[in-house]
């Protein structure tokens, strides 16, 4: 028996806004603990991890572990048809994922399961020297400030500030955010703004974002739901200066 019911589909929709802009296909794994997925884009620049714990769902029936391989663009088209006050139900029938949204009207979509073209490696565990929190809206606005001058951004964290800097052809920009965390080391790395914007499509997932950084290390951006009921995290490879 496989049936998941979520009274607020926006968590799913928001997650897939970002996921579908990064990867073409995903394997969604569901077992008695919850739902999770790991995926990496074809160029191996961005890794994405989503985890939704069993207790987040209003109904969670999953008798045996199941793997659902879906085309993210197709699933996103369906999820876009949900309204925030709809109740979402996921079931499986034959080779399809059945997605229903029930509000004033009931909509049923059958999304074909696919064969995966490539495998996703396990999430790497990286030790970071620096970790801070920032409201995701603040991060998004800062990136919008920076992108008017350049297509890449330097993240610089010291004991007081997160500084985002860019040097453009005609203008330079710098945004400073007082992070208020205990940081004992400095960290600096450069990233493509286009990739950061893909991750920020998940802004409605959770208000608080954790940034982990080290010199020329990947940027880890973690969005956590209240009571650790869910987590969406990204790992973005840096640009390296030559």
């Amino acid at each position: 028996m496989f049936k998941l019911i979520l009274s607020d589909p926006s968590i799913f929709k928001t997650s897939f806004e970002a996921i579908s802009s990064i990867v073409d296909e995903v394997q969604i794994e569901v077992d008695s603990d919850g739902l999770r997925l790991n995926a990496i884009d074809r160029s191996h620049i961005t890794y994405v991890h989503l985890e939704l714990k069993e207790r987040l769902f209003d109904v969670f029936q999953c008798d045996e572990p199941i793997k659902l391989n879906v085309d993210t663009e197709e699933l996103m088209k369906v999820l876009k048809r949900s309204k925030s006050d709809d109740v979402m139900e996921l079931t499986v029938d034959g080779g399809s994922l059945i997605v229903t949204f029930e509000g004033a009207i009931k909509k049923t979509f059958k999304v074909k399961l696919i064969d995966l073209e490539y495998e996703t490696p396990e999430s790497p565990s990286i030790e970071y020297p620096v970790k801070i929190t920032i409201p995701i809206k603040t991060l998004k606005e800062s990136i919008q400030d920076i992108e008017i001058v350049a297509d890449r951004v330097e993240f610089n964290i010291d004991q007081d500030f997160l500084k985002l800097k860019a040097v453009g052809e005609f203008s330079d920009a710098e945004v400073e955010y007082l992070h208020g965390e205990k940081v004992t080391e400095d960290a600096r790395a450069i990233f493509a703004i286009e990739n950061i914007k893909e991750m920020l499509k998940a802004e409605k997932f959770a208000d608080t974002t954790y940034i982990s950084l080290g010199d020329d290390m990947p940027l880890t951006l973690t969005l956590e739901l209240l009571n650790e009921e869910g987590e969406l995290s990204f790992l973005l490879a840096p640009r390296i200066e030559e």
Binding site: S43, H44, I45, R152, A237, P238
Partner: peptide, 11 residues
């Protein structure tokens, strides 16, 4: 000048 690195070195 900078080049895009890959996550492969971290796996």
């Amino acid at each position: 000048k900078s080049r895009q690195s890959s996550l492969d070195v971290f796996f």
